[in-house]
Amino acid sequence: MPKELLKVKDLKQYFPIKGGLLGRTINHVKAVDGITFDVYEGETVSIVGESGCGKSTTGRAILRLDEPTAGEVEFDGEDLLALSKKDMRKKRKDLQVIFQDPYASINPRQTVRQILEEALEIQNVVPKNERAKKIADLMEVVGLGAHQADRFPHEFSGGQRQRIGIARALSVDPKLIIADEAVSALDVSIQAQVINLMKQLQRDFALTYLFISHDLGVVRHISDRVIVMYLGKIVEIGDKTSIFDNPHHPYTKALLSAIPVPDPDAQSERVLLEGDVPSPINPPQGCRFHTRCPFATERCRVEAPELRNIDGMKEGHMGACHFMEEIKNGTHQVE
């Protein structure tokens, strides 16, 4: 049994909304509202969902880039939220992040060598005299070639820049990498190269990934387990085969059916969701999905469902819906 590397418990991230004459906090954006999950060593867990579901906020809260409002984050047996700012900075050696837009997240005035050197310097991973070699190795590992180390970010293409971001994350020998839409800005042909690279690095360096993405094609390819979020809550969690081939939550089903398939003959039946995602400032009472759910009843409007496993679901596969059994048997009645 692999051990848990990351344990997130009841994590909440509320952002205050200031307003009124006195600039008091008048309300909160409940970006993440009580989520619990574990990430095991060496696996890739993906968080998927649409804009505003809280997937990126979750990643940032784990890294304490924004201080979480409540909850627990345990990494490698250590409570991250109890660490001082200084200790947390040291701890980030083990938890690295790759962002969507590599151009916005690397300094355009530094060469690749300076970028990597800075990371090595801060975390003091290798002695000074070995740094040049480490940088050359890193460049080779991410497929850029050591001879390109003295170039500036603008001299690289989008895919190559993302490789620089990956090299920087790798430079401090992390255990966990949080990839926030890391391949979303890339063209398909380049995206495939970067995905292959990430999978290769995971094998070579025993990395664990928390992969945040809205692209379910990429997620299916890269993940071991998948978390589906909607309006700050987990609606379904499970191994990828369960989520993609045996989804139980009406939102997961609708989300999967909404993706256009690149095959003119495979046009499956679509669950067309009406309306938009409600505002996370005043999320709906009860089940947050009830305003758009074709199966919603009075109970859904009042009582928030908990994640649970029912007959016919694999171990570890859970959905948060009151009527999973009824919907599955076809006996569900909408009042």
Partner: peptide, 26 residues
Amino acid sequence: VGLLNSLPRHDIDLGDVELQVIEGSV
């Protein structure tokens, strides 16, 4: 052909193989 092959799909499980890529960049 390269474009179609390099696209990861949500409706097909490729298993643990590498995605086919178009080498290089534009």
